[in-house]
Design a protein around this nucleic acid. Structure first.
Lengths: 350, 350
DNA sequence: CTCCCTTGAGAAAACCTTTTCCCAAATCGC
DNA sequence: GCGATTTGGGAAAAGGTTTTCTCAAGGGAG
């Protein structure tokens, strides 16, 4: 058993227990435990001998036993009703990354819109003694189909409607809309239209309101936003409405779109009408869905909600809650950022 | 304590233990355990009394303690290197669904392409005593950056390159390609082109080979597939190559595309040239990425890899492995299906 | 009236680790 | 040299459940 022997690889054999390490090192399990955790008092030589033995045997403590005792499982649940959507992916990746960096594993729980399924998942998570729960959704203005108030573990809401008194993180949609409109203004655009999604979405109103405010602040007339669907098809229709009327002078010189699909429809429709983007009309989208934004011709400038960061912040917030730090309840809005590509044009003298 | 009293809701109070249930029912923990698990012998009345007590107290067994004893945690790890991609989502949802139905929770582990991160995750999962691991990826022809051979738990590979001797599930790409080409043939198309992705992808060759075979089986000449990128841009380029030469008689009357983005580029490019889809040229894509397939004009017929089913099967395969059923090692190919929309035209007399 | 078997239920070990308490030996102060 | 403290390490309880034994009481056979 030389000092530079290889540690045993993870293998098919049953796991090595602390008892075995202790026996091999000729000490009690108590001492072995303390040696490995840096607790207790013993000679440096004893401690080192035990550690070396553990290393050689490939000892890894059984998390189940540790959790049972410590009442802390280093495990959290991630609840989502958006397994197919593009929003939850970066969000979940961000959550997962933040937690994994802190040695915490994540249970993925897809609840769809099924209350029974949600209840089932929450109970399973609680049974498995998760340290906390992160609830994410596909819409900021909708609750998950499950009641997470009065749980015995902390809960953080990300990109979904939080319970009153809980801590929630969402993107700053108003700020994102401002970024887009103000960018247009800086580029010298003055007749800015807004084409967005269905009226039933809260973000549609939030963004439209910010759009109006920015224009008013600059003393510009505000056209009524065109509300429709989150689709390319609606982008085409909207262009027909905006650019259908004869008389070029009434046409917008910029279109701020509620998402990237609408923006793509707008760009395609404009091209089909022979209207040049960005020379005649600038276009900015929302979501920065790269696969769409980079395929438009020209590539689409878009507002990015920083969902990955949002997820990361949510993970960290939960961690501090689990650690006993009292977090200010309420909704925290995280800033968006504008990803500039080629659909909005260059500054006048640029 | 009437019989129809409400069971205690899940609450912020510390969980009820079996010991408390036993005390409240006036029996020992051993008897209580047996009553709740349907084990042991006791009067029906005793059993029912204990069960009712447990229900009223809102007792839920501590999974950690159960797992520690049973050596079965009802937990599996899901390893992926594709948190952002669209393939892993339905796959993961399928896995998750299959497992959750069987009372198994899923650890989501995003390893990116980082060996160290992968090792970390695998060790954490093993420490938490997962019953098994499912490895999924974004490409069938690439290994995950982590060695999963010789683990002490079963492993199933889904949509990623399995270790030799392991059980793996992938989509039947050749079969999917056949579906597309044969559909064209049934519709009376005879000059079928194939535009696909980069040469470095194994699926590109698999599908191209199937494409050639079907044409040969029907005694038709096979044009050399055009290989490029998985992008709309390449779809445009490919159309320029295929339809650039003067002389309409040499043009294809159908294009089978390697993915939906290429197909979209092809359709857009054809429209820009005034070539009608599906009247003049039929187009079929691959992946059935609904958000793309439904936005093309006309909506795109596409091959669906049934990834959700693939994930479900992977989950079930792992479950039976965990249950001790020996599974035949090797790669199992699951059939694709053709989702017919409007880009390929109707049968001649249809 | 015994003896044996069944029934109903409890005691205790086991799973694996952590932590508190405890004890013997060694060291220190004077 | 003697009491007090420190040092090094072990015993045991705890965490919550399952399972194997054990055991007393009751019932049936002869």
């Amino acid at each position: 058993m030389s000092a530079d022997a290889e540690p045993a690889p993870i293998s098919a054999k049953p796991p090595v227990t602390l008892r075995e390490v202790a026996a091999a090192a000729g000490v009690s399990v108590a001492t072995a435990s303390k040696a490995l955790n840096g607790q207790g008092r013993m000679t440096a030589e004893t401690r080192e001998r035990i550690r070396e033995t553990a290393r050689l045997l490939g000892f890894r403590p059984n998390s189940l036993a540790q959790s049972l005792l410590r009442k802390r499982s280093f495990t959290v649940g991630l609840l989502t009703n958006d397994t197919y959507g593009r929003f939850s992916l970066p969000l979940m990746a961000g959550v997962s990354d933040a937690l994994v960096d802190n040695g915490v594993s994540v249970f993925l729980c897809n609840v769809e819109d099924d209350t029974r399924l949600g209840q089932l998942h929450v109970e399973a998570m609680l049974d498995k003694r998760v340290d906390g729960i992160i609830a994410t959704g596909k819409r900021i203005d909708r609750h998950l189909p499950v009641d997470l108030s009065n749980l015995r573990v902390p809960v953080v809401y990300a990109f979904t409607q939080p319970d009153p008194g809980a801590v929630g993180l969402v993107s700053d949609d108003a700020g994102g809309a401002r970024l887009a409109v103000e960018h247009f203004l800086r580029l010298g655009r003055r007749r800015i239209a807004h084409v967005s999604g269905p009226e039933s979405f809260a973000v549609v109103h939030t963004r439209a309101q910010a759009y109006r405010e920015v224009l008013q602040e600059h003393g510009l007339p505000t056209a009524e936003p065109l509300l429709g669907a989150w689709s390319e098809g609606w982008g085409h229709e909207a262009v027909a409405k905006l650019f259908g009327k004869a008389g070029r002078e009434g046409w917008p010189d910029a279109v701020f779109c509620g998402n990237d699909q609408i923006a793509r429809g707008v760009i395609d429709a404009l091209r089909e009408r022979g209207i040049r983007v960005p020379e005649d009309v600038g276009v900015i989208g929302f979501d920065n869905w790269e696969i769409v934004a980079e395929a438009t011709r020209p590539p689409l400038t878009s507002v990015d909600m920083n969902l990955s960061t949002l997820g990361r912040e949510a993970g960290l917030a939960l961690l501090s809650l689990v650690g006993g730090q009292p977090a200010a309840p309420g909704i925290r809005k995280l800033p968006c950022r504008l990803v500039v590509r080629q659909s909005c044009g260059r500054p006048p003298g640029g």
